[in-house]
Design a binder for these strands. Sequence first.
DNA 1: ATCCTTTTGTGAATGATCTCACTAAAAACT
DNA 2: AGTTTTTAGTGAGATCATTCACAAAAGGAT
Lengths: 217, 217
Amino acid sequence: MEQHKIPQATAKRLPLYYRYLNNLQHQGKTRVSSQELSDAVKVDSATIRRDFSYFGALGKKGYGYNVEYLLHFFRETLDQDELTEVALIGVGNLGTAFLKYNFLKNNNTKIVMAFDRDANKVGTKIGGVPVYHIDDLEEKIGDIHVAILTIPASEAETMTERLVENGIEGILNFTPARITVPSHVRVHHIDLAVELQALVYFLKHYPLDNEKGNKKE
Amino acid sequence: MEQHKIPQATAKRLPLYYRYLNNLQHQGKTRVSSQELSDAVKVDSATIRRDFSYFGALGKKGYGYNVEYLLHFFRETLDQDELTEVALIGVGNLGTAFLKYNFLKNNNTKIVMAFDRDANKVGTKIGGVPVYHIDDLEEKIGDIHVAILTIPASEAETMTERLVENGIEGILNFTPARITVPSHVRVHHIDLAVELQALVYFLKHYPLDNEKGNKKE
DNA sequence: ATCCTTTTGTGAATGATCTCACTAAAAACT
DNA sequence: AGTTTTTAGTGAGATCATTCACAAAAGGAT
């Protein structure tokens, strides 16, 4: 592939830039400087310029960046136009939150089906997304390769095996379980309890007071 | 304070270690090696040893770590015994998920109140947590210093100002808005859309090697 | 056209984190 | 008791990421 040189830290910020640029375009703005962008997304302006520079010279000195051009460029780079279909496993409160979240507004991902074992949910649509019984996973999943896992931790490991057997290659794991997967499967963990604990720990042990911005993640 | 030398990356992993050690204790295990821990939490064993080493020599060579001792030590270091009270702002699906999540099982944080403006929710209890009207924030919040923000992005900025005026110093922000805060306030962003997009981007551009586990068919 | 201002793109410095690879100590075994 | 095995702790280097600071290019003004 072409751009193996983009740092992962940069890649993680791209969706953020993309979304804000979209906002700008809707507001009718045609140009933006790294400094303006910095104020909005809370990332150092030098970091933003560095991030963009991995894709070549996208801006003009003394002018900034053309919003439309940047968006057009990102659309291709981020594969924004190529829709990635996603399955959601577990329609509890967290799962429902995802289903009702309008990912499509700025994004390249769409949850196209959900699975649960609760008979009250199976057969309904939530946020426009059909909910199937988990027993029908094999039958329904088709060639979806990304799954969001919002089930109890106790079921995470067996469900993961089943997902992987059925072609899933990327898992956004919201369970506290650190699941085991073959080496070709990518897992991103988002552990709500850990995030909250980490925030509290930082509050107690890393007083900030006279720093400038604040950090993410 | 005492240990300002602990890297932030280490601090973020502590809750993870802590939770797994708790599991081990419940299973009756008395010792654990960095390698076992590594397999379980998916962090390189050298990183784990390095992490622990910031707190001094907690293990024994040729033996590993004593689970109980480690837990006892972490309890103090992580302030596990000192409960941090948290307020939740916005009782939608995501907020409800938090309220029903039993943070107390292994943790040092507790959501003690929630706020919303929906009359159907105000006055009820969800997951044992009372829901107050958002207009009563000033009256009810007491000296809580940590808030979880699960409201629509459009309300994030004004709500943040209000929270900060009322003594909040740490915000776990689930809205896509990059909120602006004074320098003494710490914000951690968790942006669900960005996380999903980043996962998809990595899947497409950073292929994982599948040399040893050939699971393709 | 000329000068001044803005703002990019980037070399280099710095900072942060991770991992290798080895030492030494304790445990386990014979 | 002596030998082998296990495993923590860590120096040093590798890798990754951020930030400084400035030259050069382009815009804007007159």
